[in-house]
Design a protein around this nucleic acid. Structure first.
Lengths: 244, 244
DNA sequence: TGCATCTTTCGGTGGGCGCCGAAGTGTGCC
DNA sequence: GGCACACTTCGGCGCCCACCGAAAGATGCA
């Protein structure tokens, strides 16, 4: 539309341009893959998306130019990652609005197994998601550390809890401390924001859970089961609610 | 890409399809116009967007089919509106991410005057925005009715305040009571969600403010100034902060 | 019934863009 | 130096889609 002309409505033009970055299946697949919060090389994304390397190279150029990704060159590799938490949130928000029809039962055994592991626990950019994320969020709400009835915020007891457990909360940053992330497999909100990121970082650092393979899936360790039971009252059964 | 073939990644395909609905300047302009929360006819949108009626007709068909709009036929008119608050939120979220470069000083005097009125106060789907929305949100935070330091939620005092002022809060619905909406002119969060909608509805119903013309802009009345001063301690000057 | 208004359908046109393979550039390794 | 590898650039192809005007369909009004 409107060839080289300047646009009549800059806001609409900007919105259309931004949305256009998501409006291609290959680019969308890349963005969803990058939602694991880590850096991927161009070649990995090309294989993942099933297109030629040259194709993904052009896509990454657009995504970087559009501010959605940042890149880091290391030798002959081009690493890209989501630019920041706001971009991750945008991807999540859009993905959460995708009509449910798009979810389809996995085909093979391997795929089904991987899907099940993902459903149990995974990271969503920088916080915990899946049934693990929900269990943590619910437990915090049950114990009065988080309130979801009038919005979504940590309580004073919740802030204190982070200190007691030994997780430092960086307050004062521009990022909200607590925010709801609506996951697209479980359809329930779970803890995101600076507190969610700190919790996830600590959980991985302290060995409460470990990453499975190279993907987003995480698994609660024996240590993790004990600690989660102690500090939040989460029992192992709570992680298996709704099919295993 | 991938002609009639079924897609390899349904999630990515769904995301791309959804984003594609926003990825056209004319459709984006329609969605932004509809962010006033009211129903527009196809002809109004065509004139607004500056395209032929036949063109907008096709666009509306796609937006309705995609679930972003609902339509209501009345005689020879086709009224469309945003499907629900979730869609409105999605439009807001995307618009808020548009790089600031897209905002440009208005050209004519008429346009500048309209822009100024919009900046002072307006509705954003179903809640108050602009400097009015910010003033209300800040005042509620200052008075301990809303907490933004650990997330975004009404406090118990805030829930009580709604009752005292005579604004019924429909709790228990699936929609969160309080939610932050990041406006794209003021770059600060203001109150959205069920409570924000109830407050806006009451403010218009009780004559605290009135709509200006046919657009989104609203103006605080004399009654409104008095009431806002009484119940939230907002003085008239608070609405003029940051250029008038 | 006849006319005006709002909307939709259809055919045609042009441009944008996603895709690929081949060739080119830069880097690491032996 | 020479080879392998990761990525980029380029040319070309084909499809999709936003656009318009003309004509048809639907509705309200006189």
């Amino acid at each position: 539309m409107l060839g080289g002309m300047t646009s009549r409505d800059p806001q609409a033009a900007g919105l259309a341009r931004l949305a256009g970055l998501f409006a291609d299946e290959t680019r969308a697949a890349c963005l969803l893959a990058l939602l694991d919060g880590r850096a991927w090389t161009a070649g990995e994304l090309a294989r993942y998306a099933g297109v030629a390397a040259s194709t993904v190279s052009e896509h990454l150029g657009k995504l970087v130019a559009g501010g959605l990704l940042t890149e880091e060159r290391q030798g002959r590799h081009r690493y890209v990652r989501l630019a920041d938490a706001r971009v991750a949130q945008l991807v999540e928000d859009l993905a959460a609005q995708v009509p449910a029809e798009a979810r389809r039962a996995p085909r093979g055994l391997r795929e089904a197994s991987a899907g099940s592991a993902m459903a149990r626990g995974r990271t969503c950019y920088d916080h915990l998601a899946g049934r693990l994320g929900i269990a943590v969020t619910d437990a915090m709400t049950r114990r009065g550390l988080l309130r979801q009835d009038t919005g979504f915020a940590l309580t004073d007891a919740g802030v204190e809890w982070f200190g007691q457990v030994g997780i430092p909360l960086a307050r004062g940053g521009r990022r909200p401390l607590a925010r709801a992330c609506l996951d697209w497999t479980e359809r329930r909100p779970h803890l995101a924001g600076a507190a969610g990121a700190a919790l996830c970082r600590h959980a991985l650092g302290a060995g409460w859970c470990v990453r499975i393979g190279s993907g987003r899936a995480v698994k609660v360790t024996a240590v993790g089961e004990r600690v989660l039971s102690e500090v939040l009252g989460i029992e192992a059964g709570d992680l298996r609610i709704g099919s295993g």
